[in-house]
């Protein structure tokens, strides 16, 4: 019992509880229990995240191939090469384009969808389930499905167009450089929409009904309700979703591996795929580590700025 309350004497005031200092034995016991419970997680985290990250940083100063020979120290050569690496710049550009599309879509389209789904009177569960369904499929399944949909000859999209007599507008959805960024975006959007919508839906359930009732009495329409009540109340989730969407965009990798493999040519190289291309396909683990490290630093800065800006906005609202 860490807290003790003295007996109340007649006419006396209640005493505040006194925090008793735990015994040394108890402290040791608690520490041991914590260690036992958290230890495995800490060991795994250190073993699989911290140590590899530190090793990766160390390898970024070497010419390690990853598979053969021993790494040799090359100083800042990898970072110097990075400065003039146009492929890296192209990968950044493509990743930022995809991220921008993804952030805008997941932040605002999911919010809008959540508000609409929340307002449904009938079939609420099944309809929400339909939107969430793609999220429970693995990325691999989603990507293969889209690859099939987009195939020029036998894909569902072009087959539908041909069936409708619209042969002239059939497209090579994955091969046309003008369309492929939107193909990748559509894949990500379809897969993640349910998850991001669910975050907003959960937030919508926390809005007190009194606010809606008051708004109704005041004669507010749905747009006013959204603008004056829902949107401000959804801002904490908007902060979360936008950060998660940025992470989703920057981490675009499995979708690329399964569908375009960076092609046509090098046009859908994301930063993640470029790191894989360098490290695994071209055996340049040292240089790939340098790219990873620089990307990591950039991400930390972007996430920091994003969170700071959105928090300030929340406070001001």
């Amino acid at each position: 019992m860490p807290y003790r309350r003295s007996k109340r004497k007649r006419g006396a005031r209640w005493e505040y509880p006194i925090l008793r200092r735990p015994s040394n034995r108890r402290t040791i016991h608690n520490a041991l229990a914590s260690l036992v419970l958290c230890g495995p997680a800490i060991v795994l985290y250190v073993g699989f995240i911290v140590v590899p990250a530190m090793l990766g940083f160390a390898y970024s100063f070497t010419n390690w191939t990853g598979w053969t020979g021993r790494p040799a120290y090359v100083g800042l050569a990898n970072f110097r090469e990075l400065l003039s690496d146009t492929r890296f710049l192209d990968a950044i550009r493509f990743t930022l384009l995809e991220s921008a599309l993804i952030v805008i879509f997941f932040t605002f389209a999911s919010m809008l969808l959540a508000v609409i789904l929340d307002a449904l009177r009938f079939w609420k569960g099944p309809i929400r389930g339909l939107f969430f369904y793609p999220y429970i499929l693995s990325i691999l399944v989603n990507a293969l499905l889209f690859q099939y949909l987009a195939n020029y000859r036998e894909g569902a999209m072009n087959t539908l167009l041909r069936t409708a007599g619209l042969d002239s507008i059939t497209q090579d959805w994955m091969g046309d450089p003008g369309l492929v960024p939107y193909f990748i975006f559509a894949l990500v959007a379809w897969s993640g929409l349910g998850f991001f919508t669910t975050l907003y839906l959960a937030n919508l359930q926390t809005i007190p009904t009194e606010l809606y009732e008051a708004a109704r009495i005041d004669g507010a329409g749905p747009l006013s309700v959204f603008r004056r009540i829902q949107f401000p109340m959804l801002l904490p989730t908007l902060t979360t979703t936008s950060v998660l969407a940025v992470i989703t965009g920057i981490n675009l990798f499995p979708q690329i591996v399964v569908t375009t493999q960076g092609g046509p040519g090098f046009r859908t190289f994301t930063i993640g795929y470029y790191i894989y291309h360098l490290g695994v396909l071209n055996n340049r683990q040292g240089y790939a580590a340098a790219v990873s490290f620089v990307t990591f630093l950039a991400l930390v800065i972007i996430a920091g700025i994003q969170v700071a800006l959105l928090r300030r906005r929340q406070v001001s609202l």
Binding site: P177, R267, N283, R284
Partner: peptide, 23 residues
């Protein structure tokens, strides 16, 4: 995919060769 700039294509091939050679 529509790349028609021969200089760019040649430079691309050189750059990729040299990058892969370092591995």
């Amino acid at each position: 995919a529509g790349g028609r700039d021969v200089d760019k294509l040649l430079a691309m091939l050189d750059a990729e060769w040299e990058s892969a050679r370092k591995g």
